[in-house]
């Protein structure tokens, strides 16, 4: 399977494509967020995408081959990539390859090739990241524009239907997310929307969004591939249960990551964490987090070399520990 042409969010358990006989992609459908695996998918939005794709397919069939426009389909990659083309996967993996494992091997391969970039951590950004909430029962019609967001600044409105993001024609939220995924984070984002007037007339709105530096960041705690991110925590730990937290004198809904043991070097050694420390605050935040959510919080806030601080309970006293966020590193060459 060509995972370059059929690129999708590999941490999801279900995703779909609409294609023609030449494997041109009309639309991508699927995608999730941290709340539920299928909360962003509805029967109504799937049918909406199907209707649009079928109409486009019929139009392209009716047009002469010379008049068929590449701009109507998703841009194709310049080269094919199969899981076997990832050297670490080919050399170290046997048996069935799960989708998330393909992503994990790509992360490990990028690190070992010296090509890992922080942006790689945040695949398939949400439309909310650019200030757009999309109607779940339509898929690519704006239901809300987040106040003061880039989308609001450029005048996008509720009711606008997003029809293109950069070079990607849009028929679903999945299309929007793929376009955001492949967009350069430091370049303006071109959006074309269809706007209906109260009298029913339709017009086209074209705009360019200028986005903040970290606009691609989303919660990573739900992603299976998080375990293969080259972040050396340097400790083994766990999120304490509610009863343990209460026994430690903490609120039941508070942050409580127990450092069970120090392993190798990394964040723990940089901040001089000790076995038995209880992490209770990160960047002023004390809300309940799992270990994976805590890891996600770290990755969203810091880059290697950034100064950081944690508050920990040590021998019954609350202390502050400071140090530098560690450089990317992993010794892993395979994925369990």
């Amino acid at each position: 399977m060509d995972v370059a042409r059929f690129e999708f969010d590999l941490d999801t358990t279900w995703t779909a494509f609409f294609i023609d006989a030449d494997r041109n992609i009309y639309s991508r459908y699927g995608g999730r967020d941290e709340s539920t695996s299928d909360g962003r998918q509805t029967k109504a939005s799937l049918l909406q995408t199907m209707r649009e794709v079928l109409e486009l397919h019929e139009q392209r069939k009716a047009a002469s081959r010379l008049l068929v426009k590449d701009a109507d389909v998703h841009p194709a990659p310049s080269a094919k990539l199969t899981p076997k083309d990832i050297p670490l996967l080919r050399d170290n993996h046997s048996g069935c390859v799960h989708c998330h494992q393909v992503r994990e091997y790509r992360l490990l391969q990028a690190f070992h090739d010296g090509e890992f970039r922080r942006d790689d951590l945040f695949p398939f950004p949400l439309p909310e990241n650019i200030g757009l909430k999309l109607d779940r029962d339509h898929g690519h019609r704006v239901s809300e524009v987040v106040e003061k967001s880039a989308a609001a600044v450029e005048g996008l409105r509720p009711g606008d239907t997003i029809v293109r993001v950069n070079d990607v024609p849009v028929h679903s939220e999945g299309d929007v997310r793929w376009a955001l995924h492949r967009a350069k984070s430091d370049q303006p984002l071109a959006i074309v929307a269809r706007r209906q007037s109260p009298s029913g007339d339709s017009s086209t709105v074209s705009t360019e969004l200028r986005l903040s530096a970290n606009w691609k960041q989303t919660e990573l705690g739900w992603r299976k591939s998080l375990r293969s991110v080259p972040l050396p925590l340097g400790f083994l730990g766990y999120a304490m249960g509610r009863e343990e937290r209460t026994a430690a004198g903490l609120k039941p809904d508070s942050l409580a990551i127990k450092v069970a043991s120090i392993r190798g070097s990394g964040l723990a050694t940089n901040l001089d964490l000790k076995k038995g420390d209880l992490i209770i605050q990160l960047d002023g935040q004390r809300g309940e987090r799992t270990l994976d959510q805590f890891k996600s919080d770290l990755l969203r806030r810091y880059a290697p070399g950034d100064k950081m601080e944690l508050r920990v309970l040590r021998d019954g006293r609350e202390v502050s520990v400071e140090g530098l966020f560690p450089k990317w590193h992993t010794n892993d060459v395979s994925v369990p």
Binding site: T13, F17, I19
Partner: peptide, 19 residues
């Protein structure tokens, strides 16, 4: 793809990862 070419129907391609 062969069926699609013969019949003129588009294709709905689904990836489902069973963990």
């Amino acid at each position: 793809c062969e069926v699609s070419r013969t019949t003129g129907q588009p294709i709905f391609l689904v990836f489902r990862c069973v963990r």
